[in-house]
């Protein structure tokens, strides 16, 4: 089973995402800010990370940059709200593989996660 880490400063959002993913994947860890995400990534090496765009202590994009620096092959999916297209673009340029948009549509989320995991 693929191991996934969820990064979001809202525990509600983490719970939502976890419930969508937990039947097909193993959620090995959660983090509530960018700094924690980078740290945990280094020790846990998950197969995939979802990262919220706007967080305290290192925002999503900087977290992506740091994770990619440590592991250029990291599979990262950005979580964003509508209206953050510019930021999403920047995140993709920094190394994120895809993005999902809040509010979550479970099928879309699963589809995106699957395609990123397969795209070896």
């Amino acid at each position: 089973m693929y191991k996934i880490m969820i990064v979001d400063d809202s525990s509600f959002m983490r719970m939502m995402l976890k419930d969508i993913l937990k039947n097909k994947y193993e959620i090995i860890s959660e983090a509530n800010n960018g700094e924690e995400a980078v740290e945990k990534y280094k020790t846990l090496k998950p197969d995939l990370v979802t990262i919220d765009m706007i967080m305290p202590n290192l925002n999503g994009i900087d977290a992506v940059k740091q994770i990619i620096k440590f592991d250029p092959k990291a599979k990262i999916i950005m979580v964003s709200a509508m209206g953050q297209e510019l930021l999403v673009e920047e995140a993709i340029q920094s190394g994120a593989k895809a993005f999902i948009i809040k509010p979550f549509q479970p099928e879309k989320v699963l589809e995106t996660v699957e395609s990123v995991l397969k795209g070896k």
Partner: peptide, 11 residues
Amino acid sequence: HNIKGMSATMG
């Protein structure tokens, strides 16, 4: 932003 995201999810 967080409240917005959460409430949108809940509808």
